[in-house]
Design a protein around this nucleic acid. Structure first.
Lengths: 181, 181
DNA sequence: TTAGTATATATCAAAACGATATATCAAATT
DNA sequence: AATTTGATATATCGTTTTGATATATACTAA
């Protein structure tokens, strides 16, 4: 029955613990799960509209009586079932698209400085993102008695562990390029 | 000028050291760069057709006189310029979509066994992929005098380093779920 | 021989991206 | 007081990409 659109699961997941507008959803995707997931307005708004028709979520009457339009959504019982089914489904696709690695893979014909520079740009970005992740981690460490927080904490440590591995690799990679090329 | 389609760069990169058919390109994407990039036939064939019209690649006359259709492509001088421009362009987007982490992030409402099982499925896949990467690494280690092989080697070590970090995280994550949930 | 797998091209609906348009609101600047 | 900037908020559109399917030949192993 379910069309298995990934953005639907992201939205249902976020709505499962808080009522949110489309804009809120975009912010949470960028901030809370941005280091392992991406989502754009162009997929969020159509998904909200479709899921509302399917009864997985419902619109909440706007209390901001002002002319300003603002639509908060709440997950329904049916929506919670869809989310639970997806969580229990063994299927999971983990897709990465690393343009930095693509450029490195194809960079053998260029001067080594080009590849080294591309690695340094990557390194800079990762260092900056790592700071944010460590900040999240320090906040979550204090509230590990809460089950949901344990789950958030685990995704953050995934980010930190992999980003630290990236940084070590960046040093090794630059060194090897300088030695061998 | 250039529409900056990522699949175009992948194809040009692969064609820059070998003439290939669309099918060959798909195989190389899956095998050589599959651990950090994905690409489907549905994007490859249209891209080949467009780039041939734009003069970035050209069709090679089929020598397999049989009725069987088979089109090999070769990169042109113009295509090499497009590839070089992209390599020197600082812009690079590194996008990941980890459904496993998504399920973990939203898994706080389910029983811990669901999350642990999802981690174990991920762990199994990573262990299997890691074997393949280590095989690639051992082959590339012997030919590091070649500049292009150094570049291939670096992407493979990236995969190995990050996959090993993933595995360490899997153990930690399962342990924490058992302790705290 | 025949079933299954690999090779090979191509297309299509659906999903997602990325950019843009529109508009309100709050805060900072002039 | 007026203006500009940046954040909030919804929505749409062309393009890209996915994932599935269709079609057909070649090779290989039971």
């Amino acid at each position: 029955m379910g069309k298995d659109r990934k953005i639907d699961m992201v939205i249902l997941g976020l709505l499962s613990h808080e009522d949110l507008t489309g804009y809120d959803i975009k912010k949470q995707i960028d901030e809370a799960i941005g280091f392992f997931w991406k989502g754009s307005f162009g997929s969020i708004y159509p998904a909200l509209s479709d899921m509302e028709k399917n009864g997985f979520i419902k619109k909440l009457p706007d209390k901001n009586s002002s002319g300003r339009e603002k639509i908060k959504y709440r997950i329904t019982k049916q929506g919670k079932e869809v989310l639970a089914d997806w969580l229990k489904d063994e299927q999971a696709s983990n897709d990465l698209k690393y343009e930095t690695l693509l450029k490195l893979y194809f960079g053998g014909a260029e001067k080594k400085e080009v590849s080294i520079h591309n690695i340094e740009l990557f390194e800079k970005q990762i260092k900056s993102d790592l700071q944010i992740l460590k900040f999240y981690q320090s906040n979550l460490e204090k509230v590990l008695d809460n089950k949901e927080h344990v789950h958030y904490y685990l995704t953050v440590t995934f980010g930190i562990d992999t980003y630290e591995a990236y940084l070590k690799w960046c040093s090794k990679a630059k060194k090897l390029l300088n030695e061998k090329c």
